[in-house]
Write a protein that binds this DNA or RNA. Structure first.
Lengths: 300, 300
DNA sequence: CCATGTGGATACCGAATACGTATTAATAGC
DNA sequence: GCTATTAATACGTATTCGGTATCCACATGG
């Protein structure tokens, strides 16, 4: 069966006349006869009752007419949807995220992006760095948000933001902190690191920074994730250094002190396939870059 | 666009490889290339991203794939529906009805028929005889139920049932009636006829019967329809002779006396187009004939 | 660096299919 | 019976399709 036959069929059904249908379709009458016949043969269904003054649909023809119209309409819709998708107006974006960027930055970026592209559906997947990279390779996600990605073939890691850091202390830790004496807290309280896995990671970064600053803290605990770490802080196990976005939220039993000295040390990256030419992904990346510029001086 | 192109497109999308898709479709690889290219040109959409190790869908291709699958599936559904309709298993029947046959006979017949043909949808239209005939000619209905149709070109009137008749008297009309003395009521109470229009009609039939029986009643009223007539009876204006099926229902203020002498005088007919070869109609007519035989002795 | 392999595109040819013109067949109305 | 209308058929031509062979691009491995 071919669409040509359906087009002819619908035309004849509408005109109830082979010749008039042929005129409407700008062909001669015999092709109509032949294509309809072919369609009937292939379906093993008689679609028209031919009479001397026209042709009318059989009940089978009436039933099939609905489907034929549906099919032709679906073709039109499909073409339009394909074109809209090509222009990047509709479609889906699968987004992987992990860790603290999802606390503030990702919602901000995606809210902006969604507003600019209402036809796009965004799906979010909480995936570890490793899972993100696998999902990228199999095409399950288009982009990942996180930190400290390893380089890999065909995957492009783009550093999109430098976040500041904050000291996170037990609420009842009374010492006054300023940007000159923040190192000294670690002589009084041990350090809690996170996360425990997926190296290189934020924990390595913190240790590197402290080493650079000449601090050699006692490590009380390496927590699985930031929530576990914050709970350790809350119960007084130690202190943490966290990305600023964490301070935007309310956490029981902890207080934050933003560190001007570390206002630019916490990288946030995106990762995507170099070979992915999807306009949706490109739009999102472009939107992220725009966001970067417009909020370069905004405290995160 | 042709369905061939959609079939090729779906195959390539599934295999993510032109050559493998060709194998699956039992054709060589070049035709795939050409048809896909044609499809892309016609849609002005790039459907695949060709790489050195296969081809993958663009986002536009992904969007269109859904539609292409829908279309091909709809084709399959359409063929099946067409075949089922040809076998008379599915479809619609538009039925015109008028007057008293709809009180009992029509529901009985249609209940039976619907039970035998659950896939058929039955639509009922209350139409006068004239309206039924017009609707038959324009194809709006397939069959009409009623009485006293006029013959007309291409319309076939089939007499399917002879109903008995009953005398309908005011509830407080105390005279004892039996089948020997029923004529005599019209010397005590006038006759009410119905309907007023659409001749020849039931009123003409009643007058003919009474004339045959040698009765010359006073006609008190010619009511538009049976309900109006029954109300006249209830308020005591006169008496009626009605088809037996009317007696099956409860009517305020009237009583019925079935007349054995007129147990076969009230014809019920169907009307349909001679040239209508729809299997649904044929099935219904067949079902009616069957109903006729099986209930030949059943009191209606 | 070249050899090799894979996947898709192109060129060309023969076959299948579609269309157009002319004609025929069937039927209804006069 | 004649005519008009409508669908079907016959046949020649044009288009389209698919097959074979080949080419091109690119990645991989020595």
């Amino acid at each position: 069966m071919e669409l040509r036959q359906l087009r002819y069929f619908v035309a004849v059904a509408e005109e109830r006349n082979f010749g008039l249908a042929a005129q409407k379709l700008n062909v001669s009458q015999p092709p109509i006869t032949r294509q309809i016949k072919k369609l009937e043969d292939e379906m093993s269904v008689v679609l028209f009752k031919r009479t001397s003054k026209g042709s009318e649909l059989t009940s089978a023809g009436q039933a099939f007419l609905e489907d034929a119209r549906k099919i032709l309409n679906q073709v039109k819709i499909g073409v339009e949807r394909g074109q809209a998708a090509q222009r990047g107006e509709i479609g889906t974006l699968e987004i992987g995220y992990f860790g603290t960027p999802s606390y503030l930055l990702l919602p901000k970026i995606l809210k902006l992006f969604k507003g600019e592209n209402p036809g796009l559906e965004l799906y979010l997947h909480r995936l570890s760095k490793k899972e993100q990279m696998d999902a990228l390779k199999t095409g399950q996600i288009h982009i990942g948000f996180g930190r400290y990605y390893n380089q890999e073939h065909d995957l492009c890691v783009e550093h999109i933001f430098n976040e500041g850091m904050a000291l996170c202390l037990p609420a009842d830790f009374s010492m006054e902190i300023d940007n000159s004496n923040w190192h000294s807290v670690f002589s009084q309280i041990p350090l809690i690191l996170f996360p425990a896995s997926g190296r290189p990671n934020f924990a390595d970064e913190i240790l590197a920074i402290l080493k650079r600053e000449g601090v050699d803290p006692e490590v009380a605990n390496v927590s699985e994730d930031i929530r576990a770490g914050l709970m350790q802080v809350a119960i007084g196990t130690g202190a943490m250094i966290v990305p600023n976005s964490v301070t935007e939220m309310r956490w029981f039993g902890v207080r934050f002190v933003k560190l001007a000295a570390l206002s630019d040390d916490c990288p946030i990256s995106i990762i995507y396939r170099k070979s992915d030419t999807s306009p949706h992904l490109r739009k999102l990346i472009h939107s992220i870059q725009h966001f970067q510029e417009s909020s370069a001086k905004i405290e995160i």
